[in-house]
Write a protein that binds this DNA or RNA. Structure first.
Lengths: 120, 120
DNA sequence: ATAATGCGTAACTATACGGTTACATGATTA
DNA sequence: TAATCATGTAACCGTATAGTTACGCATTAT
């Protein structure tokens, strides 16, 4: 059974994506795998800092490391992003402006009533 | 000109979404606007903690506050999530497993060559 | 064998973060 | 007017985070 599909938690993905440097790292790897050092040179921070970010991305399974001699190639693994996408999915309904306006209006009125449940 | 469309930074949105409690808050408000206190009662942490989370969500424009007497209604504003969605958009290409495999394979080989540019 | 390269990790520092309790303020109720 | 309610904020605390420099360990080159 190859190509087994695994699901990842939204938690670790969202956490990893919170840092702008890590998002930039993913953006970079999106254009192709790279050894860690070469990747680090693209950023204004030190190499160890990038190394630590890569470790976090590894823990979130957003990148995969492959050793090749003294190099370590990092490859993007977009799988965990599916968890983020499916979280977002539940909000897409609200993006249709007119529908959203109506929906929130109705719900707001409903909420207002609930505010004073003892009324009368 | 009503209904002007505004774009928000992915940065603030990603930051706001990094915390599980804040995501849960949004999930809750997705079912309808609520006053702050009522919302807080749904969580195991103190009310001030929720108040602070709401403030951060406010700063990220993910919620909108409406004062009504001594209550403050919080309404979901999904707009900033569009920034997250469009960041994700660039990764959807990779989700088609077979295509992604081919793509990363090719790119990894390409990267390998680049590792030893002085070769020969 | 020795030097150089690529990269991770340890130790340390400053700041950000999430939570708590105590308090301040404005609106409602008695 | 006094008591109560809804809610935000200040002050404080412990931990997490991102960054830095120093160092260790393979692997490749000389």
């Amino acid at each position: 059974m190859r190509n087994r599909s695994v699901t990842y938690s939204a938690e670790s993905a969202f956490h990893a994506l919170a840092d702008p440097t890590r998002r930039a790292l993913l953006d970079l790897l999106r254009q192709g795998s790279q050894p860690a050092g070469q990747t680090a040179r693209a950023f204004p921070v030190s190499r160890p800092a990038i190394s630590k970010h890569l470790r976090q991305l590894r823990k979130a399974h957003l990148v995969v490391e492959t050793r090749s001699g003294r190099h370590r190639l990092y490859r993007l693994n977009p799988e965990p992003l599916k968890a983020v996408d499916s979280w977002l999915e539940q909000y897409r309904v609200f993006w249709s402006a007119s529908l959203a306006s109506l929906k929130t209006f109705v719900e707001t009125e409903y909420a207002k009533e609930n505010v004073r449940p003892k009324k009368k």
